[in-house]
């Protein structure tokens, strides 16, 4: 079973989550916990950096879907950065680019948060 880990780094009013490894049905609870901890700390501006994410399954995308409504209701957003081609393909296939902002790097996402 391949591993998955998530680390968090808060920068002013933006929380950054770094995912690495395999995000699938088995490992989604970890990611869910991480997002929930952001919400518990009332951090609603969240950048999820997928640079080191090797694989994402539909269940992994499900976590994004499960949180986005509450986060946007609270005036925040989840922005995604640094998607590998393989990961981007899954996002694209399931129609996520229409619902989530996806950026090449953290700086762009950061600017969106600070200017928006």
């Amino acid at each position: 079973m391949s591993g998955f880990s998530v680390s968090r780094n808060d920068d002013a009013n933006i929380s950054k989550l770094y995912l690495s490894g395999f995000l699938d049905a088995h490992t989604v609870p970890k990611f869910e916990e991480a997002l929930q901890s952001c919400l518990n700390d009332e951090q609603y501006n969240i950048i999820v950096n997928l640079k080191d994410l090797d694989y994402i399954s539909s269940a992994g995308l499900g976590v994004f879907m499960g949180f986005i409504e509450e986060i946007r209701e609270s005036g925040g957003d989840i922005k995604l950065t640094n998607l590998s081609n393989k990961v981007h393909k899954v996002f694209d296939l399931l129609g996520f680019p229409a619902l989530f902002e996806i950026y090449d790097n953290e700086n762009e996402a950061n600017q969106k948060f600070t200017s928006g």
């Binding site: 499900g62 986005i68 996520f96």
Partner: peptide, 15 residues
């Protein structure tokens, strides 16, 4: 139910 929820949300854009 949680697993069911993740899979259908992710696969079908439902929340």
């Amino acid at each position: 139910l949680k697993q069911l929820s993740y899979s259908l949300m992710g696969q079908l854009l439902i929340n």
